[in-house]
Design a binder for these strands. Structure first.
Lengths: 284, 284
DNA sequence: AACCGGAACTGGCTTGAGCCAGTTAACTGG
DNA sequence: CCAGTTAACTGGCTCAAGCCAGTTCCGGTT
């Protein structure tokens, strides 16, 4: 495969090994020029996508893999690392490497802001969606503080970063005690006033948007700016994001019936568990 | 550093090494128990987020890094690989490892379906957005074929996978000749009929939705299902997605004024160059 | 039957060595 | 002055070896 220094090879005393190497090349003109680690990865990927290895199945151990290809353990490790970075596979210390199963995505829609849903169930859309999947939801408000808004938030709320303050509410969302989302909501102090929004961790029936409505800010429009990226180390730890899984970040702005922004929420969620689902009219 | 088996150490004959190990622990209670590769990665990440290393800057070479920490080159490589997987850094063969710059995201909004925009400019929203960024857009229709629809597409179009056929149009989107998106549009054969949609690669002024309108399918509502994941090897190659960068997948359904689906498009785009931006009414 | 220990597996991380292949700049000869 | 070569960088990949740390299971003890 090297073929890097064939000329040198001729000048130097003919090594025993080089002979059969050239022979095999002559016999099999269809040289597999892929690197060993890629070959292993490609083969495994093939077996996975062909369903020969099904979700939950265990891959051959690194040492077995290496032996099978006549390669070093590190090379097999490299192959596994590639699959892991693609999110195809999940390594568990001491147990093995397993084909990742694709759990049903939780589909967050715009209807999560619907007043009707709010009224009918009294439950937050998150709870509804998780329950629908047969898992048990939990929402935890970790902190309610007051601070200067981040740049992008200030911009969307029409605030001056150096002057205005916002209430910052940090919420964690769990399904079966597994963390799946973090949301940080920013509310202008002028909007929250002395309401529970400004201080209470629990907001009572009908979710936060019922409270906004009581304050004179009925949610009429939303803007959602969506991006995706790899998690920071903190996010990876906090959300226990597996290797090879990105996060979706949603910067959400709530607007009242006069199109005034009264709230911004930054949602970060595991992309292997969550998706978004919007249906909307084409305007104008 | 290990300190993993201190108890065992007491039971066994006292090794010479263990003495100073306990000593140093006593002297410096602030043991850095992180693994060498993590320490290097953490330090570099810190320097990057603190802007000491700015986008475009070159990191110390692997060999220099290794020497600085008294570690092997492979360990430095591991550290770099971690940063790469986080999408913080971009390695270039022969040149070095560079802090990745965060280019402005292209923001695709729902307004891309607006009839007014379509009429006013005659340009597709993609072209508008790219031009706005001072780059030159290009759209290339790679193929127009006829086939059975994929499962999820059939579902959304209300078709029977084994009976109905669809027109499949594959489009590639470039900015400055850099591929940034791929879109595959599926149209029921019954909808496309013998129109240009069914055969022509170029569709003329006003983009594809003008053609649909002419056929009696004015786009009135859209549904967009969004997810994110790591690219497949094919996507990584086709879109030249750098390591550590996910893709955003949008499964888009176009509905006419009677809420009938007449078209589904699967869009895959590099998450480091693209984002989505929706503004919509809260319905009900 | 319950417990505990160890053996034999698993992946995690590191070392230090070597070769290959891009890149760049300085040096050379025309 | 330009063109081509070369040397000294860079990262890419592999090897072989070793130790550590989880997991699992089996067999012996209590």
């Amino acid at each position: 495969m090297p073929g890097g220094a064939p000329v040198k090879g001729w000048l130097e005393p003919v090594a025993l090994g080089s002979v059969w190497r050239w022979d095999t090349m002559a016999e099999g003109p269809e040289q597999d020029k892929r690197l060993p680690s890629r070959r292993m990865a490609d083969d495994l990927r093939e077996r996975i996508t062909q369903r020969e290895l099904k979700p939950g199945d265990k891959l051959p151990s690194e040492r077995v893999l290496a032996a099978a290809y006549g390669a070093a353990r590190n090379t097999a490790r490299e192959a596994v690392a590639l699959l892991q970075a693609e999110g195809l596979v999940d390594a568990q210390h001491g147990r093995g490497v397993f084909v990742r199963s694709r759990p049903a995505l939780m589909r967050l829609g715009a209807n999560r802001y619907s007043r009707r849903l709010r009224g009918e169930t009294g439950l937050s859309p998150f709870r509804i969606e998780v329950t629908k999947q047969g898992r048990s939801p939990r929402v935890e408000c970790r902190s309610v503080t007051q601070d200067a808004p981040p740049e992008d938030v200030a911009e969307r709320l029409g605030l001056d970063r150096s002057k205005d303050v916002v209430i910052r509410r940090e919420n964690w969302y769990f399904a079966d005690e597994e963390p799946v989302q973090v949301g940080v909501t920013y509310i202008p102090a002028a909007v929250a006033g002395a309401s529970p929004l400004a201080s209470e961790k629990t907001l009572g029936r009908g979710s936060i948007y019922a409270r906004f409505e009581e304050l004179g800010y009925p949610i009429a429009r939303i803007r959602e700016e969506i991006s995706a990226r790899m998690p920071t180390p903190e996010e990876a730890k906090g959300l226990s994001v597996p290797l090879g899984v990105p996060v979706i970040e949603v910067l959400h702005t709530g607007l009242d019936d006069q199109k005034r922004p009264f709230e911004v929420t930054r949602l970060v969620m595991r992309a292997d568990l969550n998706g978004l689902d919007y249906e909307m009219p084409v305007e104008d």
